[in-house]
């Protein structure tokens, strides 16, 4: 495992930890899109179907369990925890996320590496992950005051995929390891969707001002 992959995994892990910290200790999920969190739960559930059959390393298995467990517990907290759910911006979080699921599924059935159940589900998870951030970005744009933890969460989530792209380039040259073009395209789309956010995130950081996205 190279440094870029590790850094990518760690930023991904930190993004989840930041979100859990906000929910668990501050008991607030203000500014967080439940729609995006539900999509991530589906992403991990469909991507890690091989978790018990395809053993790579203890590291991989533990990380998969963390991402599965955290994504489903975040959804549970936001929907059912009696204090946390009160802070959910239900009226603002209106992106109809289910309309993303069907096109991703159809695309996965049409364009995949191999037409098997596990491969199609894996490809579906890539397509869905690429666009899963959209409800969160829409909610951010509607939120007047984005708190620090929410801003950091989205930043870390975007940085994770950007670092994975650097990892793929590195692996291409050093290991002769080819990542399928589907993975490349999805990773690029996912990172580009965050690029606009990155711009405003760095601006607010540079000027030491509160993060706010233009309407």
């Amino acid at each position: 495992m190279n440094i870029f992959r590790l850094a990518g995994d760690m930023t991904h892990l930190f993004s989840v930890l930041v979100l859990l910290l906000k929910i668990h200790t501050i008991k607030s999920c203000a500014g967080i899109s439940l729609k995006t969190q539900e999509l991530y739960a589906i992403v991990f559930a469909t991507r890690y179907l091989d978790i018990f059959t395809n053993h790579i390393s203890p590291y991989n298995t533990i990380m998969k369990l963390i991402f599965l467990g955290s994504s489903f517990s975040i959804v549970w907290y936001m929907r059912y925890h009696k204090i946390v759910r009160r802070s959910y911006d239900k009226d603002q979080d209106t992106f109809r996320h289910y309309i993303l699921i069907l096109p991703c599924l159809i695309l996965a059935l049409l364009i995949n590496e191999k037409f098997t159940f596990k491969e199609v589900m894996w490809t579906f998870s890539l397509y869905l992950e690429a666009v899963a951030i959209l409800p969160q970005l829409v909610l951010l744009q509607r939120t007047r005051n984005i708190d620090n933890l929410t801003g950091q969460y989205v930043f870390l989530l975007g940085a994770y995929r950007a670092l994975y792209i650097v990892n793929w380039i590195y692996r291409y040259f050093t290991e002769d390891h080819f990542v399928h073009w589907i993975t490349w395209v999805c990773g690029l789309v996912q990172t580009l969707l965050c690029a606009d956010f990155f711009y405003y995130y760095f601006q607010s950081w540079k000027n030491n001002m509160k993060l706010q996205l233009p309407a």
Partner: peptide
Amino acid sequence: SSNGGLKDEL
């Protein structure tokens, strides 16, 4: 070599 089926990333 392609990662054909072996997904070692997360």
